[in-house]
Nucleic acid binder design. Structure first.
Lengths: 248, 248
DNA sequence: ATTATTTATTGATATAGGTCATTCATGGAT
DNA sequence: ATCCATGAATGACCTATATCAATAAATAAT
Protein backbone atom coordinates (compact mmCIF):
# COMPACT_ATOMS: atom_id res chain seq x y z
CA UNK A 1 0.00 0.00 0.00
CA UNK A 2 1.53 3.30 -1.05
CA UNK A 3 1.56 6.43 1.07
CA UNK A 4 -0.83 8.16 -1.28
CA UNK A 5 -3.43 5.43 -1.08
CA UNK A 6 -3.10 5.51 2.64
CA UNK A 7 -3.84 9.23 2.71
CA UNK A 8 -6.86 8.70 0.51
CA UNK A 9 -8.16 6.05 2.82
CA UNK A 10 -7.92 8.41 5.76
CA UNK A 11 -9.80 11.05 3.82
CA UNK A 12 -12.51 8.64 2.89
CA UNK A 13 -12.98 7.25 6.34
CA UNK A 14 -12.89 10.64 7.99
CA UNK A 15 -14.87 12.73 5.52
CA UNK A 16 -17.64 10.50 4.33
CA UNK A 17 -19.37 9.59 7.56
CA UNK A 18 -22.46 11.75 8.01
CA UNK A 19 -23.94 12.23 11.46
CA UNK A 20 -26.81 9.92 10.66
CA UNK A 21 -24.38 7.12 9.87
CA UNK A 22 -22.10 7.81 12.81
CA UNK A 23 -22.11 5.23 15.55
CA UNK A 24 -21.69 8.01 18.10
CA UNK A 25 -25.00 9.54 17.09
CA UNK A 26 -26.75 8.86 20.38
CA UNK A 27 -23.89 10.19 22.50
CA UNK A 28 -23.09 13.29 20.55
CA UNK A 29 -24.70 16.55 19.52
CA UNK A 30 -27.22 15.11 17.03
CA UNK A 31 -29.07 13.09 19.67
CA UNK A 32 -32.80 13.61 19.19
CA UNK A 33 -32.53 15.16 15.74
CA UNK A 34 -34.15 13.61 12.68
CA UNK A 35 -34.03 13.83 8.90
CA UNK A 36 -33.98 17.48 7.85
CA UNK A 37 -32.71 18.83 11.16
CA UNK A 38 -29.96 16.27 11.23
CA UNK A 39 -28.91 17.12 7.71
CA UNK A 40 -28.86 20.80 8.47
CA UNK A 41 -26.54 20.16 11.39
CA UNK A 42 -24.49 17.93 9.16
CA UNK A 43 -24.15 20.68 6.59
CA UNK A 44 -22.53 23.17 8.97
CA UNK A 45 -19.86 20.74 10.14
CA UNK A 46 -17.04 22.24 8.17
CA UNK A 47 -14.73 19.29 7.89
CA UNK A 48 -13.92 16.14 9.66
CA UNK A 49 -10.23 16.17 10.10
CA UNK A 50 -7.57 13.81 11.35
CA UNK A 51 -5.39 14.96 14.22
CA UNK A 52 -2.04 13.24 14.57
CA UNK A 53 -0.77 11.93 17.88
CA UNK A 54 0.67 14.84 19.88
CA UNK A 55 -0.83 17.44 17.50
CA UNK A 56 -2.72 20.36 18.95
CA UNK A 57 -6.42 20.85 18.31
CA UNK A 58 -6.05 24.38 19.66
CA UNK A 59 -3.90 26.18 22.17
CA UNK A 60 -4.66 28.40 25.14
CA UNK A 61 -5.13 31.93 23.90
CA UNK A 62 -6.40 30.95 20.45
CA UNK A 63 -9.62 32.56 19.32
CA UNK A 64 -12.51 30.14 19.66
CA UNK A 65 -14.29 29.78 16.35
CA UNK A 66 -15.34 26.16 16.56
CA UNK A 67 -16.02 23.47 19.04
CA UNK A 68 -15.00 19.91 18.26
CA UNK A 69 -16.61 16.53 18.60
CA UNK A 70 -14.25 13.62 19.02
CA UNK A 71 -14.99 11.01 16.38
CA UNK A 72 -12.17 8.65 17.22
CA UNK A 73 -9.12 8.68 19.45
CA UNK A 74 -8.66 10.75 22.58
CA UNK A 75 -7.47 14.15 23.75
CA UNK A 76 -6.12 15.81 26.85
CA UNK A 77 -6.92 19.37 27.92
CA UNK A 78 -4.42 21.28 29.99
CA UNK A 79 -2.98 24.61 30.99
CA UNK A 80 0.70 25.33 31.57
CA UNK A 81 2.33 26.57 34.75
CA UNK A 82 4.95 29.30 34.71
CA UNK A 83 7.66 26.67 34.58
CA UNK A 84 6.00 24.88 31.69
CA UNK A 85 4.42 21.98 33.54
CA UNK A 86 1.17 20.64 32.13
CA UNK A 87 -1.84 20.85 34.41
CA UNK A 88 -4.31 18.42 32.95
CA UNK A 89 -7.96 19.32 33.46
CA UNK A 90 -9.56 16.49 31.54
CA UNK A 91 -9.54 13.77 28.93
CA UNK A 92 -11.99 13.54 26.02
CA UNK A 93 -13.31 10.38 24.40
CA UNK A 94 -15.27 9.76 21.19
CA UNK A 95 -18.66 11.47 21.18
CA UNK A 96 -17.54 14.15 23.63
CA UNK A 97 -17.35 17.84 22.81
CA UNK A 98 -14.14 19.82 23.27
CA UNK A 99 -13.89 23.58 23.69
CA UNK A 100 -17.08 24.36 25.57
CA UNK A 101 -15.14 26.27 28.21
CA UNK A 102 -14.18 28.91 25.65
CA UNK A 103 -17.66 30.05 24.64
CA UNK A 104 -17.89 32.62 27.40
CA UNK A 105 -14.70 34.51 26.57
CA UNK A 106 -14.34 33.59 22.90
CA UNK A 107 -10.79 32.54 23.66
CA UNK A 108 -9.54 29.10 24.51
CA UNK A 109 -8.30 29.02 28.09
CA UNK A 110 -6.75 25.60 27.79
CA UNK A 111 -4.80 23.63 25.21
CA UNK A 112 -6.13 20.46 23.62
CA UNK A 113 -3.71 17.83 22.38
CA UNK A 114 -4.32 14.43 20.79
CA UNK A 115 -3.14 11.46 22.84
CA UNK A 116 -3.23 9.21 19.78
CA UNK A 117 -4.14 9.42 16.12
CA UNK A 118 -7.62 10.89 16.29
CA UNK A 119 -10.43 12.33 14.24
CA UNK A 120 -12.67 15.24 15.10
CA UNK A 121 -15.71 16.93 13.64
CA UNK A 122 -15.25 20.69 13.60
CA UNK A 123 -18.43 22.61 14.39
CA UNK A 124 -18.28 26.36 13.69
CA UNK A 125 -19.77 27.85 16.81
CA UNK A 126 -21.50 30.82 15.23
CA UNK A 127 -23.37 28.59 12.84
CA UNK A 128 -24.19 26.16 15.61
CA UNK A 129 -25.67 29.00 17.64
CA UNK A 130 -27.77 30.15 14.68
CA UNK A 131 -28.94 26.66 13.94
CA UNK A 132 -29.83 25.82 17.50
CA UNK A 133 -32.17 28.80 17.73
CA UNK A 134 -34.03 27.33 14.75
CA UNK A 135 -33.91 23.67 15.80
CA UNK A 136 -35.25 23.33 19.35
CA UNK A 137 -33.94 19.80 19.68
CA UNK A 138 -30.44 20.99 18.94
CA UNK A 139 -30.59 23.74 21.53
CA UNK A 140 -31.89 21.19 23.98
CA UNK A 141 -29.08 18.78 23.35
CA UNK A 142 -26.41 21.48 23.46
CA UNK A 143 -27.66 22.62 26.87
CA UNK A 144 -27.78 19.03 28.07
CA UNK A 145 -24.23 18.36 26.95
CA UNK A 146 -22.96 21.50 28.65
CA UNK A 147 -24.84 20.64 31.81
CA UNK A 148 -23.30 17.17 31.74
CA UNK A 149 -19.88 18.73 31.45
CA UNK A 150 -20.62 20.93 34.48
CA UNK A 151 -21.79 17.90 36.46
CA UNK A 152 -18.70 15.96 35.44
CA UNK A 153 -16.34 18.80 36.34
CA UNK A 154 -18.01 19.16 39.71
CA UNK A 155 -17.46 15.51 40.46
CA UNK A 156 -13.82 16.07 39.49
CA UNK A 157 -13.66 18.89 42.04
CA UNK A 158 -14.40 16.28 44.69
CA UNK A 159 -11.11 14.59 43.81
CA UNK A 160 -9.19 17.10 45.91
CA UNK A 161 -10.95 15.68 48.98
CA UNK A 162 -10.02 12.08 48.27
CA UNK A 163 -7.09 9.79 48.98
CA UNK A 164 -4.75 8.55 46.26
CA UNK A 165 -6.56 5.20 46.06
CA UNK A 166 -9.94 6.85 45.82
CA UNK A 167 -8.71 9.23 43.12
CA UNK A 168 -7.32 6.48 40.94
CA UNK A 169 -10.39 4.28 41.46
CA UNK A 170 -12.61 7.23 40.46
CA UNK A 171 -10.53 7.79 37.37
CA UNK A 172 -10.66 4.14 36.26
CA UNK A 173 -14.37 4.00 37.07
CA UNK A 174 -15.07 7.09 34.98
CA UNK A 175 -13.18 5.62 32.04
CA UNK A 176 -14.93 2.27 32.41
CA UNK A 177 -18.35 3.93 32.43
CA UNK A 178 -17.57 6.09 29.45
CA UNK A 179 -16.14 3.21 27.45
CA UNK A 180 -19.18 1.11 28.24
CA UNK A 181 -21.51 3.88 27.01
CA UNK A 182 -19.55 3.77 23.75
CA UNK A 183 -20.03 0.06 23.32
CA UNK A 184 -16.53 -0.92 24.40
CA UNK A 185 -15.62 -3.26 27.18
CA UNK A 186 -15.73 -1.66 30.61
CA UNK A 187 -13.49 -4.42 31.97
CA UNK A 188 -10.58 -4.25 29.58
CA UNK A 189 -9.27 -0.76 29.20
CA UNK A 190 -6.38 0.48 27.14
CA UNK A 191 -5.09 3.72 28.60
CA UNK A 192 -4.04 6.22 25.97
CA UNK A 193 -2.48 8.52 28.56
CA UNK A 194 0.83 8.11 30.39
CA UNK A 195 1.25 7.75 34.15
CA UNK A 196 2.56 11.31 34.21
CA UNK A 197 -0.66 12.50 32.59
CA UNK A 198 -2.85 10.51 34.95
CA UNK A 199 -0.86 11.88 37.89
CA UNK A 200 -1.26 15.43 36.66
CA UNK A 201 -4.99 15.02 36.24
CA UNK A 202 -5.40 13.47 39.69
CA UNK A 203 -3.06 15.87 41.46
CA UNK A 204 -0.69 13.11 42.54
CA UNK A 205 2.98 12.25 41.98
CA UNK A 206 3.72 9.76 39.19
CA UNK A 207 5.28 7.42 41.70
CA UNK A 208 2.09 7.40 43.74
CA UNK A 209 0.04 6.49 40.69
CA UNK A 210 2.43 3.63 39.95
CA UNK A 211 2.32 2.40 43.52
CA UNK A 212 -1.47 2.51 43.74
CA UNK A 213 -1.75 0.61 40.46
CA UNK A 214 0.63 -1.99 41.89
CA UNK A 215 -1.43 -2.19 45.08
CA UNK A 216 -4.64 -2.64 43.09
CA UNK A 217 -2.96 -5.46 41.22
CA UNK A 218 -1.65 -7.12 44.40
CA UNK A 219 -5.12 -6.93 45.92
CA UNK A 220 -6.56 -8.65 42.85
CA UNK A 221 -8.79 -5.70 42.01
CA UNK A 222 -7.33 -5.34 38.55
CA UNK A 223 -4.47 -6.59 36.46
CA UNK A 224 -2.16 -3.84 35.32
CA UNK A 225 0.38 -4.17 32.57
CA UNK A 226 1.66 -0.75 31.66
CA UNK A 227 -1.29 0.77 29.78
CA UNK A 228 -3.40 -2.36 29.61
CA UNK A 229 -5.84 -2.58 32.50
CA UNK A 230 -8.20 -5.43 33.20
CA UNK A 231 -10.68 -4.89 35.97
CA UNK A 232 -11.14 -8.09 37.95
CA UNK A 233 -13.39 -6.85 40.73
CA UNK A 234 -15.63 -4.09 39.42
CA UNK A 235 -17.59 -3.89 42.68
CA UNK A 236 -14.44 -3.16 44.61
CA UNK A 237 -13.40 -0.43 42.16
CA UNK A 238 -16.86 1.00 42.57
CA UNK A 239 -16.59 0.87 46.37
CA UNK A 240 -13.21 2.52 46.39
CA UNK A 241 -14.37 5.21 43.98
CA UNK A 242 -17.60 5.82 45.85
CA UNK A 243 -16.02 5.65 49.26
CA UNK A 244 -16.05 9.18 50.44
CA UNK A 245 -13.18 10.60 52.45
CA UNK A 246 -13.43 9.84 56.12
CA UNK A 247 -14.96 12.44 58.33
CA UNK A 248 -14.06 12.97 61.92
CA UNK B 1 -42.51 47.58 63.00
CA UNK B 2 -44.98 44.70 63.20
CA UNK B 3 -44.30 41.25 61.84
CA UNK B 4 -46.89 41.73 59.15
CA UNK B 5 -45.41 44.94 57.89
CA UNK B 6 -42.04 43.28 57.91
CA UNK B 7 -43.36 40.47 55.73
CA UNK B 8 -44.87 42.99 53.37
CA UNK B 9 -41.60 44.80 53.13
CA UNK B 10 -39.83 41.62 52.22
CA UNK B 11 -42.44 40.94 49.59
CA UNK B 12 -42.10 44.41 48.19
CA UNK B 13 -38.35 44.36 48.04
CA UNK B 14 -38.19 40.87 46.63
CA UNK B 15 -41.15 40.86 44.27
CA UNK B 16 -41.19 44.29 42.76
CA UNK B 17 -37.75 44.47 41.22
CA UNK B 18 -37.99 43.70 37.53
CA UNK B 19 -34.93 42.51 35.65
CA UNK B 20 -34.59 45.89 33.98
CA UNK B 21 -34.35 47.58 37.37
CA UNK B 22 -32.07 44.98 38.91
CA UNK B 23 -28.54 46.08 39.60
CA UNK B 24 -27.33 42.60 38.68
CA UNK B 25 -28.65 43.01 35.16
CA UNK B 26 -25.25 43.00 33.47
CA UNK B 27 -24.01 39.94 35.36
CA UNK B 28 -27.07 37.79 35.10
CA UNK B 29 -29.20 36.08 32.50
CA UNK B 30 -30.76 39.25 30.98
CA UNK B 31 -27.44 40.65 29.79
CA UNK B 32 -27.85 41.86 26.23
CA UNK B 33 -31.64 41.77 26.24
CA UNK B 34 -33.75 44.88 25.66
CA UNK B 35 -37.32 46.10 26.07
CA UNK B 36 -39.72 43.44 24.82
CA UNK B 37 -37.29 40.55 25.13
CA UNK B 38 -36.37 41.59 28.63
CA UNK B 39 -40.01 41.80 29.64
CA UNK B 40 -40.75 38.41 28.19
CA UNK B 41 -37.97 36.92 30.26
CA UNK B 42 -39.26 38.83 33.25
CA UNK B 43 -42.74 37.40 32.76
CA UNK B 44 -41.64 33.77 33.04
CA UNK B 45 -39.76 34.30 36.29
CA UNK B 46 -42.32 32.67 38.50
CA UNK B 47 -41.58 34.37 41.78
CA UNK B 48 -38.75 36.02 43.53
CA UNK B 49 -38.57 34.38 46.85
CA UNK B 50 -36.67 34.84 50.08
CA UNK B 51 -34.62 31.92 51.35
CA UNK B 52 -33.82 31.91 55.05
CA UNK B 53 -30.36 31.23 56.37
CA UNK B 54 -29.76 27.46 56.34
CA UNK B 55 -32.86 26.80 54.23
CA UNK B 56 -32.58 24.53 51.22
CA UNK B 57 -33.13 25.80 47.70
CA UNK B 58 -33.32 22.18 46.57
CA UNK B 59 -31.86 18.89 47.60
CA UNK B 60 -29.95 16.19 45.74
CA UNK B 61 -32.45 13.88 44.09
CA UNK B 62 -35.14 16.53 43.65
CA UNK B 63 -36.61 16.88 40.21
CA UNK B 64 -35.16 19.90 38.44
CA UNK B 65 -37.95 22.17 37.28
CA UNK B 66 -36.28 25.53 37.69
CA UNK B 67 -32.90 27.09 37.85
CA UNK B 68 -32.28 29.97 40.24
CA UNK B 69 -30.53 33.30 40.00
CA UNK B 70 -29.14 34.66 43.24
CA UNK B 71 -30.50 38.16 43.83
CA UNK B 72 -28.97 38.69 47.24
CA UNK B 73 -27.13 36.59 49.79
CA UNK B 74 -25.10 33.48 49.09
CA UNK B 75 -25.43 29.73 48.75
CA UNK B 76 -23.34 26.62 49.05
CA UNK B 77 -23.70 23.55 46.84
CA UNK B 78 -22.72 20.17 48.19
CA UNK B 79 -23.19 16.43 48.13
CA UNK B 80 -23.16 14.16 51.16
CA UNK B 81 -20.83 11.26 51.85
CA UNK B 82 -22.12 7.97 53.21
CA UNK B 83 -21.38 9.15 56.72
CA UNK B 84 -23.24 12.41 56.18
CA UNK B 85 -20.30 14.74 55.66
CA UNK B 86 -20.86 17.69 53.34
CA UNK B 87 -18.65 17.82 50.26
CA UNK B 88 -18.89 21.38 49.09
CA UNK B 89 -18.53 21.85 45.34
CA UNK B 90 -19.09 25.58 45.14
CA UNK B 91 -20.42 28.86 46.48
CA UNK B 92 -22.85 31.13 44.62
CA UNK B 93 -22.99 34.92 44.79
CA UNK B 94 -25.58 37.44 43.56
CA UNK B 95 -26.04 37.34 39.80
CA UNK B 96 -24.92 33.71 39.55
CA UNK B 97 -27.13 30.86 38.39
CA UNK B 98 -27.70 27.78 40.52
CA UNK B 99 -28.81 24.39 39.29
CA UNK B 100 -27.18 24.27 35.86
CA UNK B 101 -25.64 20.89 36.65
CA UNK B 102 -29.10 19.30 36.76
CA UNK B 103 -30.24 20.09 33.23
CA UNK B 104 -28.70 16.98 31.75
CA UNK B 105 -30.41 14.46 34.04
CA UNK B 106 -33.44 16.50 35.09
CA UNK B 107 -32.55 15.68 38.69
CA UNK B 108 -30.49 17.74 41.06
CA UNK B 109 -27.27 15.95 41.86
CA UNK B 110 -26.28 18.32 44.64
CA UNK B 111 -28.00 20.19 47.43
CA UNK B 112 -28.13 23.98 47.59
CA UNK B 113 -28.38 25.72 50.95
CA UNK B 114 -28.47 29.41 51.86
CA UNK B 115 -25.48 30.63 53.87
CA UNK B 116 -27.41 33.73 54.97
CA UNK B 117 -30.80 35.32 54.42
CA UNK B 118 -30.99 35.38 50.63
CA UNK B 119 -33.27 36.06 47.72
CA UNK B 120 -33.48 34.18 44.48
CA UNK B 121 -35.30 34.52 41.19
CA UNK B 122 -36.84 31.22 40.17
CA UNK B 123 -36.68 30.55 36.45
CA UNK B 124 -38.80 27.63 35.21
CA UNK B 125 -36.43 25.76 32.96
CA UNK B 126 -38.95 24.56 30.40
CA UNK B 127 -40.15 28.08 29.78
CA UNK B 128 -36.60 29.36 29.68
CA UNK B 129 -35.76 26.80 27.03
CA UNK B 130 -38.80 27.80 24.95
CA UNK B 131 -38.04 31.46 25.31
CA UNK B 132 -34.38 31.15 24.44
CA UNK B 133 -35.20 29.50 21.13
CA UNK B 134 -37.25 32.59 20.30
CA UNK B 135 -34.86 35.19 21.71
CA UNK B 136 -31.38 34.63 20.23
CA UNK B 137 -29.77 36.95 22.76
CA UNK B 138 -31.13 34.87 25.60
CA UNK B 139 -29.83 31.64 24.13
CA UNK B 140 -26.49 33.34 23.65
CA UNK B 141 -26.31 34.48 27.23
CA UNK B 142 -27.41 31.13 28.63
CA UNK B 143 -24.67 29.38 26.69
CA UNK B 144 -22.14 31.95 27.84
CA UNK B 145 -23.11 31.54 31.47
CA UNK B 146 -22.88 27.76 31.25
CA UNK B 147 -19.53 28.02 29.52
CA UNK B 148 -18.30 30.32 32.27
CA UNK B 149 -19.40 27.79 34.85
CA UNK B 150 -17.45 25.08 33.01
CA UNK B 151 -14.37 27.30 32.90
CA UNK B 152 -14.74 28.09 36.60
CA UNK B 153 -15.17 24.45 37.57
CA UNK B 154 -12.11 23.51 35.54
CA UNK B 155 -10.02 26.05 37.39
CA UNK B 156 -11.37 24.51 40.60
CA UNK B 157 -10.15 21.12 39.39
CA UNK B 158 -6.64 22.57 39.45
CA UNK B 159 -6.98 23.03 43.22
CA UNK B 160 -6.17 19.37 43.78
CA UNK B 161 -2.70 20.07 42.40
CA UNK B 162 -1.97 22.98 44.72
CA UNK B 163 -0.60 23.49 48.22
CA UNK B 164 -2.77 24.65 51.12
CA UNK B 165 -1.52 28.22 50.77
CA UNK B 166 -2.18 28.27 47.05
CA UNK B 167 -5.65 26.83 47.54
CA UNK B 168 -6.67 29.43 50.08
CA UNK B 169 -5.14 32.26 48.05
CA UNK B 170 -7.08 31.06 44.99
CA UNK B 171 -10.25 30.98 47.01
CA UNK B 172 -9.83 34.50 48.39
CA UNK B 173 -8.80 35.75 44.96
CA UNK B 174 -11.89 34.26 43.34
CA UNK B 175 -14.13 35.89 45.95
CA UNK B 176 -12.35 39.24 45.59
CA UNK B 177 -12.77 39.17 41.82
CA UNK B 178 -16.40 38.20 42.00
CA UNK B 179 -17.19 40.84 44.61
CA UNK B 180 -15.44 43.47 42.54
CA UNK B 181 -17.52 42.54 39.48
CA UNK B 182 -20.58 43.12 41.66
CA UNK B 183 -19.47 46.58 42.68
CA UNK B 184 -18.31 45.61 46.16
CA UNK B 185 -14.88 46.13 47.59
CA UNK B 186 -12.39 43.53 46.53
CA UNK B 187 -10.18 44.42 49.51
CA UNK B 188 -12.62 44.06 52.36
CA UNK B 189 -14.44 40.79 52.25
CA UNK B 190 -17.00 39.41 54.64
CA UNK B 191 -17.02 35.65 54.44
CA UNK B 192 -20.49 34.17 54.70
CA UNK B 193 -19.12 30.65 55.00
CA UNK B 194 -17.48 28.97 58.00
CA UNK B 195 -13.93 27.67 58.15
CA UNK B 196 -15.37 24.16 57.99
CA UNK B 197 -17.12 25.04 54.73
CA UNK B 198 -14.03 26.64 53.25
CA UNK B 199 -12.00 23.59 54.26
CA UNK B 200 -14.52 21.26 52.67
CA UNK B 201 -14.48 23.22 49.43
CA UNK B 202 -10.69 23.34 49.29
CA UNK B 203 -10.18 19.74 50.34
CA UNK B 204 -8.24 20.69 53.48
CA UNK B 205 -8.67 20.18 57.23
CA UNK B 206 -10.28 23.05 59.13
CA UNK B 207 -7.18 23.43 61.22
CA UNK B 208 -5.08 23.88 58.10
CA UNK B 209 -7.38 26.64 56.87
CA UNK B 210 -7.08 28.38 60.22
CA UNK B 211 -3.33 28.05 60.25
CA UNK B 212 -2.91 29.36 56.72
CA UNK B 213 -5.14 32.33 57.50
CA UNK B 214 -2.95 33.03 60.53
CA UNK B 215 0.18 32.75 58.42
CA UNK B 216 -1.26 35.14 55.83
CA UNK B 217 -1.95 37.59 58.65
CA UNK B 218 1.52 37.22 60.15
CA UNK B 219 3.05 37.82 56.74
CA UNK B 220 1.03 41.00 56.38
CA UNK B 221 -0.77 39.73 53.30
CA UNK B 222 -4.18 40.20 54.85
CA UNK B 223 -5.78 40.96 58.17
CA UNK B 224 -8.06 38.20 59.35
CA UNK B 225 -10.62 38.58 62.08
CA UNK B 226 -12.92 35.59 62.02
CA UNK B 227 -15.02 36.18 58.94
CA UNK B 228 -13.80 39.68 58.22
CA UNK B 229 -10.90 39.69 55.76
CA UNK B 230 -8.99 42.72 54.63
CA UNK B 231 -6.52 42.15 51.86
CA UNK B 232 -3.39 44.24 52.46
CA UNK B 233 -1.20 42.99 49.64
CA UNK B 234 -3.35 42.09 46.67
CA UNK B 235 -0.32 41.41 44.46
CA UNK B 236 0.96 38.82 46.87
CA UNK B 237 -2.43 37.10 47.03
CA UNK B 238 -2.39 37.10 43.26
CA UNK B 239 1.11 35.63 43.19
CA UNK B 240 0.25 32.92 45.65
CA UNK B 241 -2.95 32.07 43.80
CA UNK B 242 -1.28 32.10 40.42
CA UNK B 243 1.82 30.32 41.59
CA UNK B 244 1.50 26.93 40.12
CA UNK B 245 2.60 23.85 42.02
CA UNK B 246 6.29 23.20 41.71
CA UNK B 247 7.39 20.78 39.09
CA UNK B 248 10.44 18.63 39.36
C1' DA C 1 20.34 -5.85 15.63
C1' DT C 2 22.16 -2.50 18.85
C1' DT C 3 21.99 1.57 21.29
C1' DA C 4 19.60 5.47 23.16
C1' DT C 5 15.57 7.41 25.18
C1' DT C 6 11.47 7.51 27.22
C1' DT C 7 8.17 5.38 30.54
C1' DA C 8 7.13 2.75 34.49
C1' DT C 9 8.20 0.50 38.81
C1' DT C 10 10.16 0.11 43.36
C1' DG C 11 12.76 1.53 47.61
C1' DA C 12 14.38 4.96 51.13
C1' DT C 13 13.56 9.22 53.24
C1' DA C 14 11.43 13.82 54.08
C1' DT C 15 7.55 16.82 54.76
C1' DA C 16 3.01 18.98 54.21
C1' DG C 17 -0.90 18.60 56.05
C1' DG C 18 -4.09 15.53 58.74
C1' DT C 19 -5.62 14.13 63.38
C1' DC C 20 -6.26 14.66 68.23
C1' DA C 21 -6.54 17.71 72.15
C1' DT C 22 -7.01 22.11 74.39
C1' DT C 23 -8.05 26.85 74.83
C1' DC C 24 -10.14 31.05 73.47
C1' DA C 25 -13.73 33.91 71.45
C1' DT C 26 -18.39 35.00 70.07
C1' DG C 27 -23.11 35.39 69.67
C1' DG C 28 -27.54 33.61 70.87
C1' DA C 29 -30.61 31.78 74.65
C1' DT C 30 -32.25 31.99 79.30
C1' DA D 1 -25.99 39.85 82.81
C1' DT D 2 -24.76 34.95 82.67
C1' DC D 3 -24.57 30.62 80.59
C1' DC D 4 -24.12 27.65 76.84
C1' DA D 5 -23.17 26.11 72.26
C1' DT D 6 -20.71 26.80 68.33
C1' DG D 7 -16.78 28.44 65.68
C1' DA D 8 -11.98 29.50 65.43
C1' DA D 9 -7.11 29.31 66.70
C1' DT D 10 -3.09 26.94 68.28
C1' DG D 11 0.06 23.15 69.80
C1' DA D 12 1.86 18.23 69.62
C1' DC D 13 2.17 14.38 67.06
C1' DC D 14 1.49 11.14 63.15
C1' DT D 15 0.56 9.49 58.51
C1' DA D 16 -0.11 9.74 53.55
C1' DT D 17 2.09 11.13 49.92
C1' DA D 18 5.92 13.84 47.80
C1' DT D 19 10.68 13.72 46.73
C1' DC D 20 15.03 11.71 45.61
C1' DA D 21 17.40 7.79 43.68
C1' DA D 22 18.08 3.66 41.22
C1' DT D 23 16.59 0.05 38.12
C1' DA D 24 13.95 -2.27 34.68
C1' DA D 25 11.18 -2.56 30.71
C1' DA D 26 9.54 -0.91 26.44
C1' DT D 27 9.95 2.16 22.30
C1' DA D 28 12.37 4.72 19.16
C1' DA D 29 16.53 5.79 16.64
C1' DT D 30 20.67 4.51 14.38
Amino acid sequence: MSGLESVNQIDISSLKVACKDCNLYQLCLPLGLENDDLERLDSIIKRRRPVKRHAYLYQAGDAMRSIYAVRSGSFKSFTLTDDGTEQITGFSLPGELIGLDAISTGQHISTSKALEMSHVCEIPFEKLEELSSVIPGLQRQLLRIMSKEIAHDQSAILLSKKSAEERLACFIMSLANRFEARGFSSREIHLTMSRVEIASYLGLAVETVSRVFSRFQQDGIMSVNRRAIEIKDMDEVHNLAGAKPSSR
